[in-house]
């Protein structure tokens, strides 16, 4: 399995386009790692090696970068990664309650993955949705705001059914109260 990761011609073309955005190819390390993680679901050591070889950048450098940034998964994660914010506003608005509820519901602790490989839960730092606390992010993508137990139940049902959350536009209260031209 570990050596089966490859980039096809389309990927290589795309990576070339990414690199072209920068005066030096090393700058493309983060976007290319993102690209690889989107494709393979993680950036473990074999993906790191692939990225290093594709970009002709020392593997140790890629390794250092991957381990520095928390959003790169150093090992395969569950199909859905639930990043529950427990920082500051989320903390005081019940972020830990939500986290513990999910832990209980899925039978795993933060940092673990369910045995069926469907869900991973992580307790994460501020996601920049403080006004909509408590909240979580699904697999580095959409936010689910104003969490309640019911919302969590529904989210997990939906995800199990293959339905990913939609982007939720959090209106500015000023706009809601005032006239919307």
């Amino acid at each position: 399995m570990s050596d089966t990761y490859t980039f096809d011609t389309k990927d290589l073309k795309e990576i070339e386009n990414i690199i072209a955005k920068y005066p030096e190819k090393q700058a493309a390390v983060l976007p290319v790692l993102w690209y690889a993680q989107d494709k393979f679901g993680h950036t473990d050591s074999s993906v790191q090696k692939l990225v290093a070889e594709t970009m002709d950048i020392p593997e140790a450098h890629i390794h250092g970068v991957v381990t520095f940034y928390t959003q790169f998964y150093e090992k395969p994660m569950g199909k859905h990664v639930l990043d529950v914010c427990t920082c500051l506003s989320c903390q005081v608005c019940g972020g830990y309650d939500m986290l513990h509820y999910m832990e209980e519901k899925l039978g795993i602790k933060a940092g673990e993955t369910t045995p069926d490989g469907q869900f991973s839960i992580q307790s994460v730092e501020c996601l920049g949705a403080c006004g909509y606390a408590p909240m979580l992010q699904v697999t580095n993508d959409k936010y689910v705001n104003h969490l309640t137990r019911e919302k969590v139940d529904k989210l997990i049902e939906d995800l199990k059914a293959g339905k990913k959350p939609e982007f939720e536009s959090m209106k500015m209260p000023q706009h809601v109260n005032g006239s919307d031209k």
């Binding site: 790191q48 090696k49 140790a60 390794h63 381990t67 520095f68």
Partner: peptide, 18 residues
């Protein structure tokens, strides 16, 4: 270029690629 610092904060240490 065989070495890098891995991880962050007080978990930092020098390492080679995996």
């Amino acid at each position: 270029h065989q070495l890098t610092i891995v991880s962050r904060g007080d978990k930092n240490y020098p390492m080679t690629a995996d």
